[in-house]
Design a binder for these strands. Structure first.
Lengths: 140, 140
DNA sequence: GCATTGCGTCACCATCCTAGTTGCACAATC
DNA sequence: GATTGTGCAACTAGGATGGTGACGCAATGC
């Protein structure tokens, strides 16, 4: 199902920024780390900037840096920033009025989906960017 | 992110089959309930058939029926049947060997993702098809 | 036996989303 | 003022999904 790797790349980029400390990193340098394009990086960091996780400065000697302590960045918030629509989708087909199931399934499914996504978020919430960085640096 | 509504449609179809009891329903009738195409229904029920949830009989007076009690069908198993790849994707870009984060991020992310998906599955596991059907029929 | 019904599967098409790429305006530094 | 770098828009390519038609095959009912 997963069509997008935005979340994984976002965590990767944030980890790279945290690893560099306060040093500003350009989108080109970050793109090299993820092996992708600078524009892709800027698009993603644009979302993270609007969410208050990073700050990008233009101009000479510009670049990106974290706008918050790594220990204050929880992964559930990162997912929400880059994937606002959630991970479980409802079907948007018109309801067939002659079918009881067709008429009543959507609220039920909506409830089940909401609880499942809450569980997913709760799990991600327990991990901070600082924790990710610590594990990466220890492994290396 | 959600690119597919297969899971929602699958639960809808299973609910419709459970609602009908043992009565065989054709793919055309089910398609009318979900407002989609019979082939789409057969494709999805083909997955659910391989997973042992439904049985399809060909020939005149054929159709589909549940192969298991609704109380024995847990939604996490349904999700696994129709979305085997999970909901959180890793990025598959080549690792940049000069970057510590690039080299070490994947196992860490893999672990975080696995735990998050486990939480999602655990939540879905607590709901059976019988429970969904009960709520749908009570609401109507 | 034979027509009918319905699944199983394939091929094809339209659509959407994502990622990749180029280009240009704007901002900040040197 | 030149250089550097972000922000943003437009365009392209690719893959995934859903929709549709067509065909073979099995099972039923006459």
């Amino acid at each position: 199902m997963p069509t997008s790797s935005r979340f994984a790349v976002a965590v990767h980029l944030l980890s790279a920024l945290a690893h560099l400390g306060g040093e500003g990193a350009t989108s080109a340098a970050l793109a090299a780390s993820v092996n992708t394009n600078p524009v892709v990086v800027r698009r993603l960091l644009g979302l993270l900037s609007r969410a208050g996780f990073v700050a990008g400065r233009g101009g000479r000697s510009g670049g990106y840096e974290l706008a918050r302590e790594p220990s204050k960045i929880r992964l559930d918030a990162v997912l929400a920033a880059v994937e606002p629509d959630g991970v479980l989708a409802m079907h948007e087909n018109a309801t067939n009025r002659v079918c009881l199931v067709s008429c009543g399934i959507k609220p039920v499914l909506g409830h089940v989906f909401a609880k499942a996504e809450d569980a997913l978020r709760s799990s991600l919430r327990r991990t901070t960017l600082a924790e990710v960085l610590r594990r990466v640096e220890n492994a290396g």
